[in-house]
Design a protein around this nucleic acid. Sequence first.
DNA 1: CGCATCCTCCAAGGAATAGTGGAATAGGGA
DNA 2: TCCCTATTCCACTATTCCTTGGAGGATGCG
Lengths: 221, 221
Amino acid sequence: MTTSRADVFQELAVVGKAFGSARRLELVDLLTQGERTVDALARAADMGVSTASAHLQVLKLSNLVRTRREGTRIYYRIAGDDVLALYETMLAVARDRSADVHRALEAYLDVPGSEEVGIVSRQDLEDLLASGDVELLDVRPREEFEAGHIPGARSLPFGDLAAAADQLRRSGHVVAYCRGAYCVLAHDAVRLLGGSGIAARRLEDGMLEWRTHGHPVEVGA
Amino acid sequence: MTTSRADVFQELAVVGKAFGSARRLELVDLLTQGERTVDALARAADMGVSTASAHLQVLKLSNLVRTRREGTRIYYRIAGDDVLALYETMLAVARDRSADVHRALEAYLDVPGSEEVGIVSRQDLEDLLASGDVELLDVRPREEFEAGHIPGARSLPFGDLAAAADQLRRSGHVVAYCRGAYCVLAHDAVRLLGGSGIAARRLEDGMLEWRTHGHPVEVGA
DNA sequence: CGCATCCTCCAAGGAATAGTGGAATAGGGA
DNA sequence: TCCCTATTCCACTATTCCTTGGAGGATGCG
């Protein structure tokens, strides 16, 4: 048997390489929200179909994603929760270790650090849901809502939010969530609702962390 | 501010890239056991000093490792426990997701799957240490022992084990450990001791996991 | 001050990877 | 069967990365 120590690292590096391209990470990020077709991924990440396909092949060869065929189209999805956890860990390390990432994220999220008051933890949300006294808004694209959402949530894509804001006036709590800790949609939703006089809060992180921490997920419309 | 979504992934990919080379992973693996000089790393990983230095620069630029100068030599170390956790998570994902890695690891560890009886979990070891009725052997190179070991362990590098085996006959338990779950030293030590009629067991994983799971670590000789 | 040691930086050739447009393939529907 | 759609495969160029040897820098010692 000629399997050496170096071979182990060689195999291991395949996983690292897969996560070593910005374009691929963008695809992975989209896939954390549920399965998608090649074409949908290419459009969402703004790259050529050939390019997207090539990157997806790399991810598939490293066994980080799986495929499912339905008619003429092929759906890609993350291979398992451990991959989600790895992605999440990587995000956390990058944020804590690199001032650049931290700055990029802050700038991207447009958080001045001041108005960060309306935050609900995952546990708080579980409690609120149990009490029933909460309007939970999933502001991601409907596509992602259908691929998996928090039970009890209502799909209200960010684009439709402004139009629906008026009918949201309620006595109870309003909480919005989106993809993960680094997704702007929930931030923006809370800001928009605030502008309409509705005191909304956002889930601390998002669907990615909800899933990786073992909370229940509902699939379908 | 022109910080876009793509920039975030660009920064993120830096971390991925850092873990995307077999040579670099080999260095990281060595560093999980404690700080080392460039020259020591190059020798241990069997690569040129220039090559090692170049790879270490990449790791340093991605903020995954830090340096410390002592006279003319420079010690590299893992930047924090979160990086250790990331490495551990990556190992786990690679093992579970890739049949190749799994096979490579099994072949490398030379485990027929049968004689896997003498295993002690981290919790069991804590209990044994509390009772005092255990001879705990750290079979890694003395260099790594000094950079951090389990309190109460005795440094007995694998190379010296055969010579010292005779004096190990004891009434209590004998437990060996090495770097991590994928380190052969402890496996081999248990096998060697077994051949000398000493019923030894090995710690389930190793120093890497001991550290990342928050168990106490002692530094020095 | 000169010299030795350890490390980083630089330059260059070779290898691997990314992106792109077009050809080839597979499935579905008329 | 033919056509349409979605995806993969291929060929090509541009770019990036790896490795190596040697020059250059910092530190310590006599």
